Simulated assay, not measured.
Amino acid sequence: MEVKKVDFRNKIRHQRIMKNTSAEFTYSFPVIRGIQAGREYYTTMCPLKLVPRLFKFVEDDLPPDLRAQRTLNKQRIPALARYIIDNKESYAFSSLTVSIDGEVHFEPTDSDPIKSKLGVLSIPMESRFLINDGQHRRAAIEEALQECPELADETISVVFFVDAGLNRSQQMFADLNRYAVRTTRSLGILYDHRDPLAQLARTLADTVPVFAGMTEKEKTTISNRSRKLFTLSSIYQATKQLLRKGKNDKISNQEKKLAFEFWKEISNNIPDWNLCKQKKVAAYELRSDYVHAHGIALSALAIAGSALIATYPASWKKNLKAIKALDWSRHNKTIWEGRALIAGRLSKAKTNVTLTSNLLKQTLSIPLDPSEEEIEMHYAAGKK
């Protein structure tokens, strides 16, 4: 037997094994062996430069019942690739999960009970690799490498399962995704330290007097009996609309100060918020009876406030006092039905946010822009 080896910096070794008169080519991975549901699986570290070569997505043209995963959503790839490129010193990707369709051989490094879990996994080159979880990460890595080849020698963990057929692979995909729960938007904002707007929203939630202690930072919705009145996600969205910023846009100190002053001034003109802060009225009562206790009001206030500040930069605080006389009661169907309410229930639809901000602009004597006027005309026509 003749053996020739090519070393990929001690991460992946390529072996050529000649047996009798035939040749067999294998990939050899340094791995840790584990047991799950009575089956062996293996974990390795794979250089990013080898990910696109080894693990290919080839199921686009197959019908769903012959695939073992969802189709590749190519629209997701640029954002994932940009995430790697823009955060080369802090990006984090979870493991790829891969099934191997072929015979494999595990050679432990030692007979010791602990060391026997470490070894080399040899996989014939004619074997097929099927990505059970992580095809979008794999595609993003390929795209990121084109712009940043210096990432080539960084690694991603790969978990190998030996394929037991299509049914088993489909079941693995179902099991891997069955209990996956996306984090709430508020929690994502709370933990996002890259987005300047998320940082500002957290600061506002802690420093604007009426927000402090009254903001739900983990959930996007507030339970009926909660003492919280606002959500971090609604503060984020409304401040984004106030400052007319996009995700990851830079925010100046002057804009930060403006956001703080705006929300503080808004709270001075909605007395119910301060009564709730002082525990003179329950938060759930405000949510039950008033439009201003919901995220749609924060967004509408921000949209109208942004226009107010642009129109009256020197006197916006004085002009803002006009909203103090607005009847925010949900029981006032003449004002709110069809605008913030649909059949008595609050609607977060974009059109309803616009209609609510239109009412605030009219209250503040601010002209509507053409698109807002069109929406208002449709609303008025429907009321007849």
Rank of each mutant, 00 (worst) to 15 (best):
L80I: 11
T207D: 07
I342G: 01
Q69S: 02
V158E: 11
Q135V: 09
T363N: 00
I309E: 08
D7W: 11
T44C: 08
A307E: 07
T109I: 14
W328T: 01
E103Y: 08
L121Y: 05
F25P: 03
R168P: 03
L151A: 03
D289G: 08
S94G: 15
S233P: 00
N358E: 11
N167D: 14
T363V: 05
L145E: 07
S371N: 10
N87Q: 07
S116L: 01
I303S: 09
H136Q: 00
T239K: 09
A198C: 06
D272P: 06
A283F: 07
R330Q: 12
G305C: 03
T97M: 05
Y91D: 06
S306V: 03
M125I: 15
A79R: 11
D133Q: 06
E216R: 02
Q146F: 05
S371P: 00
R13M: 08
Q170I: 12
Y290L: 06
L121M: 04
A37K: 07
E103A: 14
L320W: 01
Q75E: 15
C148E: 13
E374H: 07
A201T: 01
R339K: 12
F29M: 11
L121Q: 00
T311Q: 15
L258N: 08
T71K: 12
R138W: 02
I12D: 00
K240W: 14
A302C: 05
C46N: 10
P209W: 11
A325M: 14
I303W: 04
T363E: 01
G188Q: 10
R182S: 15
K245Y: 06
E216L: 09
Y191E: 12
M45T: 13
A314Y: 12
V3S: 00
V162C: 00
A37V: 04
K88D: 13
D369L: 03
E107V: 14
F230D: 00
N167V: 14
R287M: 12
W316Q: 12
Y191T: 13
L359Q: 08
H294A: 08
I366H: 08
R53D: 15
R137H: 12
A380G: 03
N177E: 04
I270E: 03
K250S: 15
E147C: 06
L96Y: 01
T184F: 11
D86A: 00
R225E: 09
R182G: 14
G246K: 14
E337M: 01
V3D: 04
R168G: 03
T71S: 13
D153F: 05
R33C: 04
E107R: 07
K11T: 11
H14Y: 13
K219E: 12
K4L: 14
I32G: 07
L326H: 00
Q75C: 03
K324G: 06
E373N: 05
L176Y: 10
N167I: 13
N73T: 10
A68C: 10
E373Q: 14
K383Y: 09
T97C: 06
R70V: 11
